[in-house]
Amino acid sequence: MRKINLLVSITAICTMVFLYIPLLSVAFFSVNDTKYGMVWKGFTLDWYLKLFQNEMILHAAWNTLVLAIVSTIVSTLLGTILAIGMDRFPWPRKMNTTLDLILHLPVIIPDIIFAAAMVVAFGFLRALSSMFEPGLLNMIIAHITFQTAFVALVVRSRLVSIGKEVEEAARDLYADTTYLLLKVTLPLLMPGIVAGAMLAFTLSLDDFVISFFTAGPDSVTLPLYIYAAVRRVVTPQIHALSTLVLMVTIIMVICMERFTRKVNIK
């Protein structure tokens, strides 16, 4: 048994090293004072400073942020209302299964198929209006679509766990529908809504494939920029940018963890 324990520990630690070595080497070379090669030439923050002078990177960061914020706001609204509509009404069984299936589609189908479907759909919409040229609007619409499904799933599971007792009590005390919704259901639902919104926001920041298929020349986001750059040549500046993105990810993950743990303890 001792032998097995040792083996488990060694494998586990090697696996963690395997997961982190690529990321750590990106961070390591982002502060290396040479443009080429894999030799350590001393510590520098030059590459980080240069990021903030690069017009294209700033524009890409701006696009990423606009895309994530707008799509998160819309999808949180749509997803929450949809979740309430699905859970709090006596729909027949068949209808429930259909709604459930539609909601799970973005979760189960590979995102490249969804991206392909978006390309074709926007191709047809372009014939109706030039609004649908590849660009930020298309990306926002595509992101809202898969985010709405994820938000609705998260909020619905919260709705189920709340149960119906509190709302019944409110009705017994003569709460009307608007009052019930605004003062009882929504406050109870808030942790689920916030969790859903955070999930939607991270999904949007994280997404590459769907953005890659729907983006136009003027709507490059950070992941798209990094992808295009590393296909040509890998530079320390890209390492610096990736390290910054990684840091933002770490902060968001820690916030999400804190938040969900606090809710669970309550």
Binding site: L82, A117, A121, I144, T145, A149, A152
Partner: peptide, 30 residues
């Protein structure tokens, strides 16, 4: 029952309309 269904549809429509328009329909077109 009628009132309840009407209210329910009000809640369902925005989200479902979006998903049908930009998920189900594009899938069928594909």
């Amino acid at each position: 029952g009628k009132k309840l269904i009407k209210r329910g549809l009000l809640f369902l429509t925005p989200g479902m309309l979006w998903l049908i328009l930009f998920l189900v329909l594009p899938g069928l077109i594909l």
